[in-house]
Design a protein around this nucleic acid. Sequence first.
DNA 1: ATTCGCAGCTACAACGTTTTCGTGTTGATA
DNA 2: TATCAACACGAAAACGTTGTAGCTGCGAAT
Lengths: 357, 357
Amino acid sequence: MRGKIFWIKIMKQKPTLKVIAKELDVSVSTVSKALRDSKEIGEETKQKVKAFAKLYNYKPNNIALSLKNKKTKTLGVIIPEIVHHFFTTVISGIEHHANDKGYNVIVGLSNESFRKEVINLEMLANGSIDGFIISVAKETLSVKDYHHLSETIDQGIPIVMFDRVIDEIECDKVIVDDAKTSKKAIQKLIDSGCKQIGIISTKDYVSVGKLRTQGYIKALKTNKIDLNEDLILKIDDKFNSDDNLEFLEEQIYSYFENNTIDGLFAVNELYAITAMKVARQKGLKIPEDLQIIGFTDGVLSKHAFPPLTTISQHGFEMGMESAKLLIDRLENTNDEEEPFKTTVVKTDIIERETTKL
Amino acid sequence: MRGKIFWIKIMKQKPTLKVIAKELDVSVSTVSKALRDSKEIGEETKQKVKAFAKLYNYKPNNIALSLKNKKTKTLGVIIPEIVHHFFTTVISGIEHHANDKGYNVIVGLSNESFRKEVINLEMLANGSIDGFIISVAKETLSVKDYHHLSETIDQGIPIVMFDRVIDEIECDKVIVDDAKTSKKAIQKLIDSGCKQIGIISTKDYVSVGKLRTQGYIKALKTNKIDLNEDLILKIDDKFNSDDNLEFLEEQIYSYFENNTIDGLFAVNELYAITAMKVARQKGLKIPEDLQIIGFTDGVLSKHAFPPLTTISQHGFEMGMESAKLLIDRLENTNDEEEPFKTTVVKTDIIERETTKL
DNA sequence: ATTCGCAGCTACAACGTTTTCGTGTTGATA
DNA sequence: TATCAACACGAAAACGTTGTAGCTGCGAAT
């Protein structure tokens, strides 16, 4: 009789150890141990408990476990925007490795805003996650205020930075060798016969933008080509550039007005695509009159017309590496602290149809 | 003396109520109440506690709160893939509303796989989240196995489905009126002078694909145009179509071999873009010889050449609505159950350059 | 002189686990 | 018969919170 009423009650909500214990007339500890196959418990009781647990689909409550173990098996990922091919491939990579290791991923968006980044960090740093993977907001880079990051690290919560990293903060990092990669791209343009090569980059506070223009400069120097500062266009987009498309287009347009180039390296897909668009408006044939290489291999590059030669950053791999670095650190039980690592993932030039041969 | 050593210890880890209590020589309850400004506590003590808490940056532990309150203030979002413009805009919308309401978002990827969807659901249903927002995997739709969904609902965890929904499951839903929308698109093609209109859709088990072809058929009927089954191409992509590009291209190519059309409606961006590509190969001018309308306004459409006329699904709004529906249900304290709602978000045709006038 | 009221605080239980340390019952050994 | 190990189980603490109930001392009212 009692049983019947009881069933109905537990059908709805997940049963807890306590419920099972009461129903089977054993103690909570016994149930717990039986389920974990402890040798302290008799075979018979074990079977009984397991059968019951299976029948009512018992699953230990994650929150209770987190509280007890002081670890949540959850990673916090904070990125500037999510409607963005590169970042989503990175998330894919993170998820992949995290799931493999039994971790969940909780995503926070900073929208390139310093304030939102701080809020997100604080919101999650109160026990919700074991560690962070982050690519910092442009605004954070430009105001150079990193207290939220150093504070979380001081609290014992490890951080892994990827792509946009901060030299001043000591933590694990995953990057591509931006300078070297862009140098390689420029070299390719030179080898393909370009004489006047331009670059469209971001303002220098964006670490990757800075490095990529450095690579550009270095490549020219190596090839004994004089540096013409006019050929370097530094776009200032503090926020999501997709919203400022006209602004971007204007800047690139006037750049093309003032310079004649036969090779162009763009620091991201969007810049490259937009450049192609205005080049077309100005009657330039690609790749005959103008060769273009982009950075980041996203949907745009692949499906552009003509398909864009670009640099693949291997976002998925970056994500995997980031998750690996973080989880390794989290699960490292040695009491000596591991030194911080920076892993560099390789880049490739994906040759499509905006470059010759 | 004791103090000094103590500081060092708590500098690192977040202080707990217990630590503060011990240091201030009061009880844990007093600290808790002081921080929540309870009138049970004397003004003096309150000030003391608050000052200390502020100094050492005390923040209540989220996990402990979750355990106590039986709610995590976290939403579980499960989507087929994340490297996908539509889904990311939806996530943006979800995040936006969720953050507004003090919720976090934890993302699970099914990769269009039934198994992974089930695993994700189960992994999070053990107390980690308060409710789900989900767009079901193609495989789930094709095998028609929904037990994992009904079981979670039975356990008292609410689910909101968006875009790809399941009629048989009773829960809140957020959709666009696919049939009506596609009918509208077809009508536009007809009005623009198209005589032979084709559609590239998915196999019928994908709810949205089915509905969109229904709209196509209805539009033809309304305009007294005979239905030619050959003009309906149903792509069978169980998985991420980006990986099967050649396969997709082949199918569309042979479709173009066997049919001559002057209007085309594609059920998503990728199909539309790919169709444009093969059309170009076959020497068709767009929009002069062939007008095209896509579905889902993503980066591809905007930056395609020529820019694609497409249907905007307003993913951000769908995400917001989903989060709203879910949180409203979670926070609805009336004991009478709210009836399930289905909100339909409106669509727009964004006219660009693949259609005339 | 006793009781009442009240301010200001503490104790304790509870949320769901796991784990350490008992404790009582067996059967065997000395 | 007394001792002891093995076995099968239970009690309790702990993780960090919050809320209810209880306790203490003191001034005022009876």
